[in-house]
């Protein structure tokens, strides 16, 4: 217990490190470049028309959410093992960034589905499982908010963050298990009843690769870094508050 307390000391907030500044610049430029690739360089889809371009954000955003939620699992396991709050900060950052990217994924998918499937939303297995995944991470945030003790909160959040990843895997694998989905499969063959497919030309592949790099890696890493710094600052302020109160 005493050891855990000693480790609890958050670092004094520092000025934004220059690497993070550079990364921020790269992220902004990357989003612009990815948009240029998606909106200009990639050819217009013959079957679906301009709306298909949303796919270059849609699929990479899910990939980014996957990376962020993966970071939560890593943070959770490492926190339970080492009991260093910095791992818990990584876990929170992962959940919040992943949640935002999953929402982007849902919203862009919905906009795409309106002209292609003729509906904003349908209770398709993949859509349903994704909605459940988003709700699971909403539950994670509620669980965190419901616990006052810092150590307990971190422990519970770590355990729940590990369990919650099951729903992410469910979204990935449900297409293989339930063949009644109409959602196209990106990797491997689409089911017979998939509505709207993805045939690739070089421009399409290029836009997808840039999108994956930007939305799937650079954006989540940058955002998570900021979020970790913010959480560190929060911990530091709380500790200062306690010091003042106990003085």
């Amino acid at each position: 217990m005493a050891q855990a307390k000693a480790k609890d000391i958050a670092q004094e907030p520092t000025a934004t490190p220059s690497l993070l500044r550079i990364l921020t610049l790269v992220t902004v430029l990357g989003v612009v470049v990815a948009l240029v690739f998606a909106l200009v360089i990639a050819g217009t889809d013959i079957e679906q028309g301009e709306v298909q371009r949303i796919f270059y954000v849609h699929m990479p955003a899910f990939f980014g959410a996957f990376v962020a939620f993966g970071a939560t699992v890593l943070g959770g396991v490492m926190y339970l093992w080492k009991r260093d709050p910095k791992w818990d900060r990584l876990a929170v950052a992962g959940v919040e960034v992943g949640f935002a990217l999953a929402l982007i994924n849902l919203i862009t998918g919905s906009i795409w589905a309106r002209p292609i499937w003729n509906t904003w939303w349908t209770w398709d297995p993949r859509l349903t499982s994704e909605a459940i995944m988003v709700l699971t991470y909403a539950a994670y945030m509620m669980l965190r908010a419901g616990i006052d003790n810092v150590d307990t909160r971190r422990r519970f959040a770590s355990v729940y963050g590990i369990l919650a990843f099951a729903t992410v895997l469910l979204v990935l694998f449900i297409i293989r298990v339930r063949d009644d989905t109409i959602h196209p499969t990106v990797v491997g063959n689409s089911p017979q009843n998939a509505q709207g497919s993805f045939a690739a030309t070089s421009g399409v592949v290029g836009a997808l690769m840039v999108g994956l790099l930007v939305w799937g890696l650079i954006v989540p890493v940058t955002l998570m870094w900021y979020r970790i710094r913010l959480e560190n600052m929060l911990d530091w302020v709380n500790r200062k508050k306690m010091e003042v109160l106990s003085a």
Binding site: S129, I132, M133, L135, T136, A139, M142, L143, G146, Y160, L163, A164, A166, T167, L170
Partner: peptide, 13 residues
Amino acid sequence: ALLSIAMLPIVLP
């Protein structure tokens, strides 16, 4: 309240 919110999504599979 929290148990149902936390449990239902995870037992979905």
